[in-house]
Design a binder for these strands. Structure first.
Length: 390
DNA sequence: ACTCTGGTTCAAGACGTC
DNA sequence: TTAATTGAACCAGAGT
DNA sequence: GACGTCC
């Protein structure tokens, strides 16, 4: 669930950290894309109601393929626009998240029952709605997606833990320009730039700049993390009676969750004297310190150690995989590949220079050492780079 | 009146052809 | 021993 | 642009 109500909170308290941008703004840039989020959207959106059953896209063995169709098309759109996507997959979630995951699993099981019921009653609209909520991603589906994206020539990263944390690390290391996700957690993991609405064709795209946000809120990073925990995160329960509004006020006044807990106890003690109900309820296991650690020093692969390269699609194996194993129509693949193949690489390169040649600001200026090594790539478009053709 | 919280419920894509 | 995405909108009810 | 289809 990310950080509860953080988006709305930021709109109110830090309205100037947002920008709206069109897709072409990102030409020449490298973007870290949250894969699981995108897969869910595609899987859900490719379901439809038949007369007596729900129809899903599958291969001949019954494995679902809606996510492949979506990722295939969207990746082509990116490449077509000169955007270099890095698809980042979730690894094993942290132990603290198991409570939240169990909750979601239970909801999905309930939705499954409701789907069956609706099917019996012939309420296909309801059946579709409930079936969408049962959507899960199996390991086969995930492996299929990884295989396809790699055959398309895109770098794929399987994060050791949370994908958002890995993207934030890549962004701070200068390997990507931004993290594209709907999950507001990415800001808590301190991604410098967050993009929302990036994996749908609908424009504009919303960009949130971390530095602007933190300045406007007038908080330190540590205080912002505490604020997120108080709003409600995936790792621990929250204090009942404190939402985003009061959390912000209290953080300003008492500086940290420790300070707030002291204050909370005072308030509650005072009310007990007057025979009043407690104003706030601290959960019996309020694991705010562990949560903090997960946000501030998450398990990630170091950005420096990752080399991101884009290759030309492996057309033969891609077609083999998608047509023979996944049942894709050959014409769709050919059409799709044409969209990126017919672009003359030289023309492509000069187009990027047109976009950025004059106005590019190097965020991490190369010192002479880095230049000599020349393996220190940044997210900024490179004027002479581009060894890899797309 | 107003603010805030907390629970519930809904929504989440793109292509090709007409 | 398998799977593990989320936000937004709405409304009721409590507290100030 | 709306609509059926994508697998």
């Amino acid at each position: 669930m990310g950080i509860h109500q953080l988006m709305q909170f930021l709109k109110e308290k830090a309205p100037n950290c947002f920008r709206t941008l069109m897709l072409d703004y990102f030409a020449g840039r490298t973007i870290g894309c949250d894969a699981s989020m995108a897969m869910y959207q595609f899987l859900i959106q490719t379901q439809s109601a038949g007369l007596t059953q729900i129809i899903e896209l599958t291969d001949k063995e019954g494995n679902r393929t809606g996510h492949l169709v979506g990722l295939f098309n969207r990746t082509l759109q990116f490449l077509e626009n000169g955007i270099k996507p890095v698809w980042v997959f979730d690894g094993k979630p942290p132990l603290l998240k198991s409570g939240e995951l169990a909750r979601r699993k239970k909801l999905k099981e309930e939705a499954k029952v409701k789907t069956e019921l609706a099917l019996e009653q012939g309420d296909m609209q309801q059946a579709l709605l409930q079936n969408q909520r049962t959507t899960t991603i199996s390991s086969i589906m995930k492996e299929d997606a990884i295989k396809m994206l790699q055959l398309m020539g895109c770098p794929v990263i399987i994060a050791p833990c949370e994908a958002e944390a890995q993207c934030a690390e890549l962004c701070r290391a200068g390997k990507i320009y931004a993290t594209a996700t709907e999950d507001m957690d990415a800001l808590t993991f301190r991604t410098p730039v967050l993009l929302r609405g990036f994996n749908t064709k609908k424009e504009p795209i919303y960009e949130i700049i971390y530095d602007d946000m933190i300045k406007e809120l007038e908080l330190t990073y540590e205080q912002f993390v505490d604020l997120c925990i108080l709003c409600g995160c995936d790792y621990t329960e929250k204090i009942e009676g404190i939402g985003p509004g009061t959390a912000y006020k209290l953080i300003k006044e008492y500086k940290s969750i420790e300070g707030i807990l002291e204050h909370v106890q005072k308030v509650n003690a005072e009310r007990e004297k007057n025979n009043q109900n407690p104003k706030y309820t601290v959960p019996s296991k309020f694991l705010y310190q562990d949560s903090r650690e997960l946000f501030i020093t998450p398990l990630v692969q170091k950005g420096d150690e990752l080399q991101l390269t884009w290759n030309k699609p492996d057309v033969d194996n891609l077609k083999k995989f998608l047509i023979e194993e996944k049942g894709f129509a050959e014409s769709r693949i050919d059409n799709g590949l044409k969209r990126i193949a017919k672009k003359d690489p030289a023309g492509f390169q000069s187009r990027l220079e047109n976009f950025f040649g004059k106005t590019t600001k190097i965020i991490h200026p190369n010192n002479s050492k880095a230049k000599a090594k020349s393996n220190k790539k940044t997210e900024q478009p490179q004027k002479s780079g581009g060894k890899k053709k797309i």
